[in-house]
Structures are given as C-alpha cells and as structure tokens.
Design a protein around this nucleic acid. Structure first.
Length: 804
RNA sequence: GGGAGAUUAGCGCAGUUGGUAGAGUACCUGCCUUACAAGCAGAGGGUCAUAGGUUCGAGUCCUAUAUCUCCCACCA
C-alpha cells in the first residue's frame, strides 16, 4: 500500500541508492541484446554544474531510458573533461595563482586535487537528478587510459601523415599565453578607430592614403597590397613606400583579396595584423617581423614603443602620427573582433613551432560524413556544414600549457627532427621519460623534450575511441563503434562534433556515431544565456531539486522542443509538481481496489476496452516521437492521456469498483483488470521522465504481483487486445454525453453529484450507448436514460436533489 | 554580407501527408463529487507577423517583406 503522502526528499535518495545497489542501469557485456551506445559529453571541469547542463543531459538521459525499455543493451558511460585550458583557468582563479609563476609540477598537482573534489560534486549532482548512466563506465580525459589513447591518436595521425609540425602562423592568446584553434574564437563587437595615414612614395612628395585600425603594427609592415585590377592605384607598382615614423621602405604587391572599394583600396600587410596577413605571409613568403611578444607587449622592433602593451602602444603611436603630420583623419567605428572564447582577449597571430592536424584538405569528406549522420533536429546540420565551409586554418593542437596530455615527442638536438614515442610505451611524459630510439633522420642520441601539451579537444574528440576501447579491446570496439548517439548542446558543434568526426575518419575510416541530437540552452531570461561569469542562474540546480524534487526538474527539462532554447519557468515546474502529485493520488486510489487482486484476463466492459485502446493509440505516437528524439512531444501525449484516464475513465469506472453489489462482480473485475494493466503500462512510460515517483509507486503496489525488481526493468509497449479499434470513437461519444451533462450542471450551478431523474439521448449508435448505460447512469447520477436513434441530441429532465 | 530558426489565445507552446484553429496556464463562473481544493466541471479569449501566389480549399506549399534569436564572415 502507498502512504498517504509522498515525500520526494526521502524517496528520491532512497531509490537512487537502490538503483546503484542493484545495478539497474548497468551495461551487460555478455548480453545478446542489440546495443545502443551513447557518447556522453564529458562536462568541462571548470566551475559548477548549472541548470543548463541538467537540461541538456536530461534530454539524452530520456533517450537512454527509452532505449533500455525497448529492448536495448544500453551503453551509457559518463565522463569528465578535466584537462586543458578551461581547467587551468579555473584553478588559477580559484586558488589565486598563476601557473607560470608557481611552476609546472606544483601547478599540475594543484589541478589534480581541485579536479577530483569538483568531479565528486558533479557526479553527486547527476545522481541526484536521477541520471541513469552506468557509473562503472566512468572516464576522465586526464586519466592514464585517456592519455594513452590520446597519445596513440597523435601517433596514428603522424604516421598517416595527417598531422604535421611547423612554424606556421597560429592564433595566439596573449593572456593565456598559448596558441588556440579557430574554433576557440568568438566574435565580439568592440569600438575602434580607423586611422587614415599618409604613406609617402619613396623619392617623391606624394603619398598614398592607407587606413588602419592597428597603427602599432607599422613596424611589422612587410609590403603594401593593391588589387591587380585596380587602375587607379596601378601607378604604385614598382614603387617603394616609406613607412610613417619608421623610415624603412616596403614594396607594392598585388592580390585578388584586396577590396578596391574599401578605404583607399590600398592595404598594408603586417606580420600579423589579421588572418589575411597570415595568408599573404605564407603565399608570398614574406619576412616575419615579430612586433608583439607572447605576453602581448611590443618587441624591440617597435622602437620607442617597445615594452608597452598593445593598446598603450596604439594610443601613443596615434599621438605621434598626429604630431608628425601623418594623420589625415580618424573615424570612430565599431566592428567585430575575434577574441579568445575563454578569456575575451583579442586574438593575435604568432609564429612558433606548433603541431597541426590537417582539416582543410578534406572538407568534402567532413561534409560527406555529416550527411551520413542523422541530425536531430535536422536544421542543426547547417551549423556543421557552415563551419566546415568556412574553415581557413588547420587544427592547431599544441598548447603552451601545463595540465593536460603531453605531446609524446622529443626533438633531435642536432637536426630538429621530431622523435615520436613508441605506441608500446604510452602514456609517456617526454619531460620525464626518455626516447627509446635515436633520431630517425640523423641517428643522433641527443634530444630535447617537447614541453607543450595537447589541446583539450584533441583528447575529448576521441571519447568514442576511449569508451569503445580502441586498440585496447578489439572485440569490444567492433561491437560498440560507431556509437549510436552523440548528444550535445549546439555550442560545441564546431568543436566537439567536428573534431570527433575528423578523428573518426582518420583513425577508423568511419563516422563516429549514427545519430546526433542537439539540445538548446537554458535562458535566464529572454535572450540571455545562463553563464557562470554572469552568475545569472536565478537558483542553483540543487535549490530547484530541494524545492520541487528531481522528478519535477526532469519534467521541466522534458518540456522543451529539441534544439530549441528554453526558459526556466516556475509555471512549468508547478505543472510538474501537480503531475507528480496526481500520479501518486491516482495510484493510491486504484490500489484501494487492487490490494489482493491477482491480474487475470476477464470479459471487459465497453468503456474499459475504450481506455485500453486509447492507451495503445497514445503509445504509438509516444514511440513515434521518441524515435525522432522528440522527448517533449512524446511526454505531451502521455500526459494528456493520463489526465483523461483520471478525469474520465476513473470517474466512469469507480462506481463499479465501489459497488459490485449494484453493478455486478464482473463490472468490478473488468475495472480492476483495466486499472491494473493501464496504470502499470502508463507508469512504465512515466518512469522515463519521473524515475523516482514511479519507482515509489511500483515498489509499494505492483511489485508483489510482478517479477521485475524495478519499474525500470520493464519493456514498454502496447497492451494485447482482441477487440475492434472502432470502440475508441464510440467511447469518445460516451464521454461527449457525460460532458453534456456536466455542462448542464455547471451552467445551472449544480454540484456534479446532483441526481437527475431522466435523460433522453438521441444518438446514431444506440447499441454501444446501451451497452454501457450503467456506467453513464452512474457517472452522471441519472436514474433513467431513454435512447433514440438519430443525430446527437440530449435532453435533460427533472432534477431530484440539490445538495445546496 | 552569408546561413539557420522563430513569429498561432494575455503568457509559454502543439498543430503529422494542405480539409471547420488545439491542449496547458492565467483570467472568469461554479462545484468540498466516498483518490487528489496541488482537485473537479464549465465559459470567454486567436484576420495563425504582413503582402502576394499555387489550389475547389493554405496555420501548413511557393515568393517577397518585417521583427526577434542564433551561427558564420567582415579587424586593410
């Protein structure tokens, strides 16, 4: 029996422990069932889990439960992305230290410790919301195993010629002091000044006007570009241009990329002002003039500005340009600039030895694989293809940081050739370990270690390989790869999804997953994304759970449409609370009549057949929506069925349950069978969304007459029937009659239990109405019903009693 | 500038292949009905953003336009 009141704060932890203790969600290695595998996003360990995570993760979690309950052996690992820059930045902030100041080893140790306590907190929170991951399959991107696989990936790419080491222009963050990848950039609008400067033509008093927002880079100017079709400025070719204030001269070159309409149609090329400069640098093999050092200060070539920060130098040089008559005019503009997404620092370009993975040369392949994968919702695919189309740089994977997977490489001291670690000795730390062989090129045994580490995405992009045991357990790998589902929010399509596709192709010549499911964001308010930096999450997830229970929070996460952003809504949370309450009450009610009931088939009354068929119909659309990953729409179907079950079916059948002496023992048996069967089936569907309340009900009621240890062990499905679907329509007509009587009573301000002496019903199907005439009489409190054949009409007669 | 999504009741949303606009919530009116007042019944409320087009028929398909959101590019 069920207690009078449901107490979520007691029940939820109880069942969470029960599921753990009984391995309810465990992946079965030896099962013959089809496998459904989920490539769970490892949350970045750089702060606290907020409601946005819970939203996104729940969406995938519903799929895991649905698949588990439709006969799949679900492989659902959980992991943490605990290496790399985001974690370093978090640790620096939390402990108020700077990595380069306290030293590599001390800092790494601090990172390890910080990450461990945070992960414990993360894990507990996910357990608290009833996440059904198999916690035995836990992974960490900084673990020995992950490091090994990540370094193996690096070596495999090197051996296949898909990665290279080069001194090539790479994006550089002067605050984080590391290279970054194109995907780590973000555009923000910044105010700036367009400076129109005089560049004198050597040997004349004539000048050409060139506009720039970055006058501090004059010292790094290599040349001037004009468009080859530019008739107006053609005269500049073969002339030398003198650089203002610096007095050196540069040549004039032509390139198609120059926009004749922009500014004066003449551009200066510096190393490096922007990505176009970097492209020209490579294309025309220009000289590298390093004007900005790694920490964002001007170098000695800047002359008097040397040692100044970029912005400081810019302000100063503008003054000097004005004072020396070079400034023609200035324009205030706002423009989009690329900044590092982690810290907001304006991106620079730097030339250093870096490792790259080739992404530009296979754009067609990336798109083809994108086409092979089912995208849910489908429109999110364009985010991916747009990104691939717009790629302009290979993926730079080396980072000048500390806490992460070391690049398994040494360099020959004599000839500079990379000495790659052997696959057998992984994981290695080149700072500690020694190479097992001499330089492959010159045979020298003198080496120096690589001190850089790998981009965190270089490791998280192989979560399928890590989890499926690539090069560890071939049998397992072949069973699990490609994985069934990649779920993530839309912000990491260009990073995590794209890079995983790249790795899957290079390593395994395959797409990494068959389906991808993209969730939206939780907005604090319309148009405002929840973020840690703004700390605009109105309440923490923990507080929501405390106030409403985990089931209710889960309910809210299920109300969103796939791929669409959602607002935190107290209204929706309240709805969820009502639903949980109603479920419990409905369970309590029907179990008054099922206590000693042993389920057995019986001759069913017409309206009992009706609700069973309604259930089956609902189940069809429920399943259809789930197969399209539309969990919210599936829940709508279920929820409205449930309210209909309570408000109409229970009302119709309750008299038979209460009074078998009047309505017959068969009427009671039929209602018992129907309540038992439909409620149990419905409970199983609700278990996907509301795992705790459904378990609570199941354990205290159905468990005695069912074999499964938990509600979550059932296979969901339809109810077997041998009767005609037309009963749905006929039963709906009966509900319609009941509604008419309710309407009459409501309009006349009567209580619903007001007795009516007689009703005259005209209906096309007299036979069906007549077969459930007792139910209609009981639910409408009517003594006599007269039936006529014809178009629907209802006449309500004299009222017998009014309770007022 | 390129691309994607959205626009339906006061609000947040659903509307499958074109066939008379839907539930929830809020508001209003009632009802303590042998589960549930966190409940039940009922009522009102919408030129489906705008303008064209296709069609016997358009919320749905096509073409523009407007507004909002997001992604990407634009630093000369």
């Amino acid at each position: 029996m069920l207690d009078n009141k449901y107490n979520a704060s007691v029940s939820e932890p109880k069942w969470q422990k029960f599921w753990q203790d009984n391995n309810i969600y465990k992946f079965d290695k030896n099962s013959n069932k089809p496998i459904y595998s989920i490539d769970t996003p490892p949350p970045t360990v750089n702060g606290h889990i907020h409601i946005g995570h819970i939203f996104s993760y729940s969406q995938a979690e519903f799929i895991a439960r649905f698949k588990r309950m439709t006969g799949y052996n679900v492989f659902y690992p959980f992991g943490f992305d605990d290496n790399g820059l985001p974690t370093e930045l978090y640790v620096e902030k939390k402990h108020k230290v700077k990595a380069h100041e306290i030293g590599r080893e001390k800092f790494r140790q601090l990172c390890y410790e910080t990450v461990q306590s945070l992960e414990e907190e993360f894990k507990n929170l996910f357990i608290t919301v009833g996440n059904s991951a198999d916690w035995d399959l836990m992974y960490h991107t900084v673990s020995k195993e992950s490091q090994r696989t990540s370094q193996m990936s690096f070596i495999d790419l090197y051996n296949k010629g898909k990665s290279y080491c080069a001194s090539a222009p790479a994006l550089w963050c002067t605050k984080c002091r590391t290279s970054i990848a194109q995907s780590e950039l973000e555009s923000v609008e910044r105010d700036s000044i367009f400076n129109y400067l005089k560049f004198f033509i050597e040997g004349t008093n004539d000048y050409v006007e060139i506009a720039t927002t970055r006058p501090e880079l004059l010292c790094a100017c290599d040349c001037i570009f004009i468009n080859p079709k530019d008739e107006k400025n053609k005269y500049l070719l073969n002339k030398k241009i003198r650089i203002p204030l610096y007095n050196f001269t540069v040549p004039v070159l032509t390139d198609d990329k120059v926009d004749m309409e922009k500014g004066s149609g003449v551009v200066m090329c510096c190393t490096f002002g922007d990505q176009t400069d970097a492209q020209w640098f490579k294309k025309y093999k220009l000289e590298y003039k390093k004007a900005i050092d790694d920490s964002g200060k001007m170098t000695e070539i800047a002359g008097k500005y040397s040692g100044m920060k970029v912005r400081e130098a810019r302000a100063q040089i503008i003054e000097d340009l004005k004072a020396n008559g070079y400034m023609i005019k200035q324009e205030n503009i706002t423009h989009q600039v690329s900044v590092h997404e982690r810290c907001g620092t304006e991106m620079e370009i730097n030339l250093k030895r870096q490792w790259f993975i080739k992404t530009l040369e296979n754009k067609d392949v990336w798109k083809k694989i994108g086409d092979e994968i089912n995208w849910y919702p489908s429109f999110m695919k364009s985010r991916y293809t747009d990104w691939v189309d717009n790629l302009i740089m290979d993926w730079c994977i080396s980072r000048q940081k500390y806490f992460g997977v070391p690049i398994p490489v040494w360099y020959c001291k004599d000839c500079g050739t990379p000495i790659i670690a052997d696959a057998k000795e992984l994981p290695v730390n080149p700072l500690i370990d020694k190479p097992k062989h001499a330089c492959p090129k010159c045979g020298s045994i003198h080496y120096e270690p690589e001190i850089d580490i790998l981009d965190t995405w270089a490791t998280s992009s192989i979560t399928p390989q890590i989890n499926c045991k690539w090069n560890v357990d071939d049998k397992m790998f072949n069973k699990l790869f490609p994985m069934s589902l990649r779920p993530n929010a839309h912000d990491i399509i260009r990073t995590w999804d794209f890079y995983t596709i790249v790795k899957g192709f290079y390593h395994n010549d395959s797409r990494p997953w068959n389906n991808i499911m993209i969730s939206g964001f939780v907005m604090a308010d319309k148009g405002e994304k929840i973020s840690k930096s703004k700390s605009n999450a109105k309440q923490s997830t923990f507080e929501f759970i405390k106030q409403y229970s985990a089931d209710v929070v889960r309910y809210w996460t299920a109300t969103g449409s796939l791929g669409r952003d959602i607002l935190i809504s107290e209204d929706v949370l309240k709805n969820g609370a009502k639903l949980v309450n109603k479920l419990y009450n409905a369970g309590k009610f029907i179990w008054q009549f099922l206590d000693n009931y042993i389920p057995k088939k019986t001759n069913l009354f017409p309206m009992d057949k009706w609700i069973i068929l309604k259930y089956n119909k609902m189940f069809n659309s429920f399943k259809k929506y789930f197969e399209k990953y539309e969990i919210g729409l599936a829940m709508n179907e279920l929820e409205s069925f449930f309210w209909n079950f309570c408000d109409n079916y229970i009302e119709i059948s309750k008299n038979r349950l209460y009074k078998p002496e009047i309505y017959g023992e068969n009427g009671k048996l039929s209602a018992q069978y129907t309540c038992y069967t439909v409620f149990l089936k419905m409970l199983q569907l609700f278990a996907i969304y509301l795992p705790h309340i459904t378990e609570e009900i199941y354990q205290n009621t159905f468990k005695n007459t069912q074999n499964e240890i938990s509600i979550h062990k059932f296979n969901i499905g339809k109810i077997d029937v041998d009767f005609d679907e037309k009963i749905i329509e006929k039963g709906d007509a009966v509900v319609n009659i009941i509604s008419s009587v309710r309407q009459f009573k409501s309009e006349n301000k009567l209580s619903l239990k007001t007795e009516i002496k007689s009703i005259e019903i005209t209906n096309e199907d007299v036979e069906f109405i007549s077969s459930c005439i007792d139910d209609i009489k009981a639910v409408t409190s009517t003594q006599n019903i007269k039936l006529n054949q014809g178009n629907f009409d209802i006449k309500i007669g004299e009222i017998i009693s009014d309770n007022k």
